[in-house]
Design a protein around this nucleic acid. Structure first.
Lengths: 124, 124
DNA sequence: TCTGTTCTACGATGCTCATCGTACATGATG
DNA sequence: CATCATGTACGATGAGCATCGTAGAACAGA
């Protein structure tokens, strides 16, 4: 019963194998929301980590904020259409919606992820 | 003397014909700043208008905010590296730094500008 | 010089939101 | 059942910023 209480904007999605948190349909995703989601440095870092690792959870993502804040950011990323989250046991694994984003905004994520992260400092 | 007081981060630039407001060098432009600049709906609208018209000034841009706010947004866009502004008489004409952006972040602006503006509503 | 236009700087204001701590639900494990 | 780990909801807080009005500088034209 808490399933549909989990998110205000929709119901759980069913895959052949997995259950997914509600997310906007590809044609509902708006470029303004995407840009707003990626504007935050922590969220951009999360996106980079997901692009590198494929998947990530609230605790596995190495970002300098508390767990509840990571959860908040993952929610924002999901509601804007950037990531999809599936339930695996007690954890929730998020991944980039690479295919849908490429369909809706060709070249966008590629261009952003190709950009050099600014927090890379020359060490040694 | 007020020329270098006009912006805190640099001096005027001289072209063969024009004088330009100070702006970051192409390699100083950071993707995070770009995304943050484009995250605001009014600024995104300004960018769309500039892409369509080529150039625009504080008063010529048709956005639903006051002139001083447009000036503020153009400053943000300039300092983030999105637009360049040249002085023509009493007016200041801003344009997208299309070439430099394409060089630094290939496909980025193309992808964003290709996205359908959300404020298009079916009328009639 | 006087007038009108364009634009910016500055201060004030109000709202959005990133962050955190806490409490709680859920699932895994013993 | 008891315990622990994971994640979210919620309320509070503080900072950032979008917006505006006003004042003043710079330029064009008469």
């Amino acid at each position: 019963m808490c399933i549909d209480r989990d998110d205000r904007r929709g119901e759980m999605m069913r895959d052949s194998q997995d259950t997914w948190l509600p997310q906007p349909a590809p044609d509902e995703v708006e470029i303004g929301q995407i840009l707003q989601a990626l504007a935050d440095p922590v969220r951009l870092q999360i996106v980079r980590l997901l692009a590198a690792a494929g998947e990530g959870s609230c605790t596995s993502l190495d970002v300098p904020v508390k767990r509840s804040t990571v959860s908040h950011h993952l929610r924002t990323l999901r509601e804007s259409g950037v990531v999809a989250t599936r339930l695996v046991g007690n954890t929730r694994l998020s991944r980039l919606r690479t295919a849908e984003l490429e369909e809706q905004f060709p070249g966008l994520m590629t261009a952003i992820l190709a950009a050099t992260p600014r927090d890379r400092q020359p060490v040694g």
